[in-house]
């Protein structure tokens, strides 16, 4: 447009001009400050246009009502609950049966025979269980029938059935620790993916999370997506907790407690790193026992309460011992599968 013919309307309807007046765009700022200098004869139009923009913004501002944080949060919870409910019901109903003309009856009978054979084989094989296991210090990556990937940490096992059916939720049973990357399924499937453990059940759509169940305690750390968790005994989902990315849920006695964490650190074992953050030696000892089968003994029970933050490669425990010794002034000795921790003897 020819600058000379710029009218007030031209200016007011120019998005870049509006951004300049509102001070929301440095680029527009440079352009219009410059324009102002080059067109002193347009200062009246400029002035009026500016007043109009500010006035229009202000009038609207005085009229708007905003959602408050509580409304935003409530609605979010409502939506998440609904989505989980619906996905539970979303398995498509089978198409209604149609009347078959008599002439097709023979073909139908034959088909039926073949089908029943198939169903028999299906049921039979479906009951075949698959069990994946890892030993101490070992991790394993498993691809499930739906292409979801599970990485099993050391000394853990995952159980499932060989064939999964579209109208059934996908179910696996875990003891130990694993990282789940669950595939999202198409509309025609039951979308649920349920991980059962001794303590809790985790219900999932498509998502990534770390689940650890040891010593009658469970911990879920959600990296992506949406999961809901309930106690294994709570079959009616009375006290379901919904997790958002970044949430960590721990089962403590009968309670499920949520806090926010750096999720990367909880699945660092997948990249072969052991990571501890302000954890007591008791917790570290438990970890060593769970993952490596090491029996840890403290010479004085007070030592067990010391806290440590640090990491080491999963295949280099001596480095961890060294870090612990130096930072907490300890002496650590390993003999076969037992570890003795005592105060530095120096």
């Amino acid at each position: 447009m020819d600058d000379q013919n710029y009218t007030v309307e031209d200016l007011v309807t120019d998005p870049s001009f509006v951004r300049w007046v509102k001070g929301s765009d440095p680029q527009a700022q440079v352009f219009w400050e410059n324009w102002k200098k080059q067109h002193p004869e347009k200062s009246t139009e400029l002035q009026e246009a500016r007043q109009l923009v500010v006035a229009l913004y202000s009038f609207n501002k005085s009229n708007v009502a905003e959602a408050n944080p509580q409304e935003i949060n409530n609605s979010k919870n409502y939506i998440q609950r609904k989505i989980l409910d619906q996905s539970a019901k979303s398995a498509k109903p089978r198409p209604a049966r149609q009347l078959i003309p008599l002439t097709y009856l023979r073909a139908a009978v034959v088909t039926l025979l073949i089908a029943s054979g198939l169903i028999f084989w299906w049921i039979n094989s479906a009951s075949n269980q698959l069990i994946y296991q890892t030993g101490y210090g070992e991790t394993k990556s498993i691809t499930l029938p739906d292409q979801s990937v599970v990485t099993l940490n050391a000394n853990s096992s995952l159980r499932t059935v060989e064939i999964w059916q579209d109208d059934q939720p996908r179910e696996v049973w875990l003891t130990g620790e694993a990282y789940f990357e669950v595939n999202h399924l198409a509309e025609s499937h039951d979308k649920r993916f349920i991980v059962h453990t001794e303590v809790i059940d985790v219900q999932v759509l498509g998502t990534k999370f770390n689940l650890r169940q040891r010593r009658n305690q469970a911990e879920v750390v959600l990296a992506e997506g949406l999961v809901s968790v309930n106690h294994s005994e709570d079959k009616n989902y009375q006290e379901t907790q919904t997790l958002r990315p970044g949430d960590r849920l721990r089962s403590q006695d009968k309670q499920l407690i949520i806090s926010q964490v750096d999720t990367e650190k909880y699945s660092s074992w997948r990249n072969n790193r052991l990571y501890f953050e302000e954890q007591t030696l008791t917790e570290i000892a438990e970890r060593l026992q769970d993952n490596y089968g090491l029996e840890v003994t403290f010479e004085e029970s007070a030592l067990a309460e010391l806290e440590f933050t640090g990491s080491c490669p999963t295949d280099n425990l001596p480095l961890l011992y060294e870090a612990l010794s130096v930072s907490l002034d300890l002496d650590i000795q390993q003999r076969d599968n037992s570890l003795l921790i005592r105060k530095s003897q120096k």
């Binding site: 989505i83 998502t207 990315p245």
Partner: peptide, 8 residues
């Protein structure tokens, strides 16, 4: 593609 985190 059905990503719940995208919805969020």
């Amino acid at each position: 593609q059905g990503s719940p985190s995208a919805l969020e």
